[in-house]
Structures are given as structure tokens and as C-alpha cells.
Simulated scan of single mutants.
Amino acid sequence: MCILFFHAKKIASPGKFRLILVSNRDESLKRPTKHAHFWAECPDIFGGRDLQVSAEGGTWLAVNSKSGRLATLLNLSTKTLNPNAISRGNIVTDFVKDPSISGREYEAKVAEKADQHNPFHLVTFEILPNDVLINYLAHLPSGGSMGPIDLLQTDEVTESISNSPLPTPMNKCKEGLKLFKEVIGKLDSTECKRELIEQLISFAKTDTKFWPDPILSMRGELEPLLKSYSSIFVNVPEKVYGTRTHTVILIDDVGKMDFYESTLTENSKGDLEWLDTHQTFDFNY
């Protein structure tokens, strides 16, 4: 039950950020995963990889460090999954690898074959010299698609997305958005970058239960553990499931990106421990 928060501006004032993004990936804590890294077959791409056999090579979030594009995918909740569906992980991979197609064009292309996949949200970001383009597509549990939708139609936007349809956010999206806005309201400055990253990681670890939640309550198949999924940081030890990756992405007014990831990995003893990765690069405008 992943969650995404982002704040974006078409043009940032000097010393401000054009994009501030926080993502939590919720997954089985034992699912094989490689932390964020430059990909051997495509060295401009930086992001984590899913190593599960059925989804090997896919990703939930990645960035093209040269072209200024990134994308993230979140599952949309559904009571019944198609066991024969094509993995969703390559949807992000294909977008960041191909700078020749715009986010809107790519999402329209994905929508044509969305029924091959189980339900999902896809958000694409294109960081251009004088603009930021953010497009959204959903393949809905009821069938059909929502989008592509331009999420940045004004000068700036602050948004949150989890595993319910965009028009019906869970409480943790609505309440979390308030907390997120408090952080960026105080620390949206390149001079405060280190503190901003620390505060955003702390925010991503919020374990307050935003319960009861009428939207989440529709997930009857998760009973009797529904309340455990109502926080931004999810921990369901009964299922060996929870938040296993935090990602913070900052892009400043001159195109410098900081990509910070903290992910649970298995050490040599078979125990899980948090591994931090921090990479910076400049987009080649």
C-alpha cells in the first residue's frame, strides 16, 4: 500500500526547489529487491529494481539522470488480481529509458494496452529548462482508464496519491498532505536542504493511524488488520509486510537533483537492516 507526496513548481525562484517528492514503497519485506543504483544496461537510469522472478527488471520509481524525466507507479487496490497479468514494473522502466516520447504521449500509449496489467497509478515527471510537466494515468479496478491528466495546470501543485482512485483519497493521503505542506512551508530552500531531507524522511516514517477511514474500510479482504494499513509508514508483522523503501527527490532551480533512498535490505546474517543511498547529478538541459 504505497504512498506518494510531491510539490512541484513550473519555475522556481532562486534558491527554491522545483520538485520535492517523497515516496514510500510498501511490499513484502522478503521480496527480492536491489536498492537504488545506476543500471548496467542503461547507465543514465538511476533507481531500485524488483528482483522477483515474475517482475525482474521492473521498478516502482526511477529517474533518467540526463534527460530530466522520472516516473513512479503505485498499485491501485482491487479485490481480485489477474494472476496472468503482465508485470506493471516495466511501465516505469520503458518511460525513463525513452526520452523521445513525452509523458502525455507515453501514458496515452500505455492506456491502450492497460488491460494487460492489474490496476495501477502512473505519474510521469519531465523537468524542462522552463517548465515542469506532470501527467497522471490510472488503470482502474472497474476497467478502463483515467487520464492522461495534466496535474500541473497552474504555477504549482501539491498532491498525494496512494492505493485508492485519485478522486477518493484515503485519510492518510489527506492528513499526510497537511503534514507534508508544513514541512515544505518551512524548509523549501536550498540552504536548508540537509534539514529538509531529514524532515521528509521523518515524515515518511509517520506511524500515526489515520483511522477510521471509510475508503480503506472498503478493503474487507485485509480484515482484521485494516487499521495497520492506515498510517503513512505501514508495519504489518503478521504478514511480514510494510514500508521497506523511503525515497526523497529534490530538484532545485538550476536542475541539480538529490536522490536519497533508505531501504530495508537483507544482510549476510539474513536480518533486515536499513541501507541509505544518496546520489546527486545535474540534468543536462
Results as ranks from 00 to 15, higher is better:
Asn171Lys: 10
Pro148Cys: 05
Glu261Cys: 10
Ser77Met: 05
Phe95Cys: 00
Pro99Thr: 05
Lys181Gly: 07
Ala62Leu: 15
Arg219Lys: 14
Asp253Glu: 14
Lys174Leu: 12
Arg88Glu: 02
Trp39Lys: 09
His121Asn: 11
Lys269Gly: 08
Asn24Trp: 07
Asn75Thr: 10
Leu70Thr: 03
Ile184His: 00
Val123Thr: 14
Asp50Ser: 09
Pro165Ser: 02
Ala108Asn: 15
Thr277Gly: 03
Ser162Pro: 01
His246Pro: 04
Asn90Met: 13
Lys9Asn: 10
Ser231Trp: 00
Ala108Tyr: 05
Thr59Ala: 08
Lys10Gly: 08
Glu195Lys: 11
Ala111Arg: 04
Asn267Ala: 11
Ala62Trp: 00
Tyr285Gln: 14
Pro214Val: 06
Pro237Leu: 11
Glu191Met: 13
Ile161Tyr: 00
Ile149Ser: 04
Phe233Ile: 04
Asp252Tyr: 09
Asp150His: 09
Gly143Pro: 04
Asp253Gly: 08
Gly185His: 06
Thr247Arg: 00
Val63Ile: 15
Leu4Phe: 14
Asp98Trp: 03
Ser189Ile: 08
Ala204Val: 05
Leu152His: 01
Glu198Ile: 10
Phe17Lys: 02
Thr33Trp: 06
Lys178Tyr: 08
Leu275Tyr: 11
Gly176Arg: 02
Asp26Ser: 10
Arg31Ala: 15
Leu225Glu: 10
Lys10Tyr: 04
Pro141Thr: 08
Gly220Gln: 13
Asn135Tyr: 15
Pro165Leu: 12
Leu177Tyr: 09
Ile20Ser: 00
Ala62Gln: 00
Lys10Glu: 07
Pro99Gln: 05
Ser77Ile: 05
Asn64His: 14
Arg31Asp: 11
Ser100Ile: 04
Trp274Glu: 09
Lys209Asp: 05
Leu137Cys: 03
Cys192His: 14
Ile215Glu: 08
Glu56Tyr: 10
Tyr229Ile: 04
Ala62Phe: 01
Ser230Ala: 13
Leu216Asn: 03
Lys239Met: 10
Trp39Val: 06
Ala12Asn: 07
Leu19Ala: 07
Arg194His: 13
Phe210Trp: 09
Cys192Pro: 03
Phe259His: 15
Glu195Val: 12
Lys256Cys: 14
Leu73Gly: 00
Leu222Ile: 08
Glu221Asp: 12
Glu223Leu: 12
Asp253Ile: 06
Asp44Thr: 11
Leu200Ser: 00
Tyr136Met: 06
Glu182His: 13
Pro141Cys: 11
